[in-house]
């Protein structure tokens, strides 16, 4: 199982380089999420977003980025909420091994 030393007090990775797809599975399991193809495309998009711009997006930029890359249907917050319930930007960032988005609504 997950070594708790790898994670901060809220469950985000301490060392972003530790992330692997297998680790994402474990992080998701801890959040009671079974990763599907739909989850993975958001996770990859988030990781690309972070590497491109060096920032974890809040909800609005996330939905815009999803709309642009995966189509308007998936860029709706309702869709993202079904995949990552509660706060999609926070939960998806956690599973994608990225820093918690700042000042997230």
């Amino acid at each position: 199982m997950l070594d708790s030393i790898l994670l901060d007090e809220e469950g985000y990775l301490l060392n972003l380089d530790d992330w692997t797809p297998e680790l994402a599975q474990q992080l998701a399991t801890q959040e009671d999420i079974t990763l599907t193809e739909q989850h993975w495309e958001i996770i990859h998009l988030l990781r690309d977003f972070y590497h491109e711009f060096e920032v974890s997006p809040a909800m609005r930029p996330l939905t815009k980025a999803v709309s642009k890359k995966l189509g308007a249907e998936k860029g709706r917050s309702i869709y993202l909420m079904t995949l990552f319930p509660g706060s999609p930007p926070k939960l998806a960032a956690k599973i994608a091994g990225l820093p918690k988005p700042a000042n997230c609504l």
Binding site: E52, E54, V55, K68
Partner: peptide, 8 residues
């Protein structure tokens, strides 16, 4: 890098 992300 953030400059390109501002549009979002």
């Amino acid at each position: 890098k953030l400059l390109d992300g501002l549009e979002f």
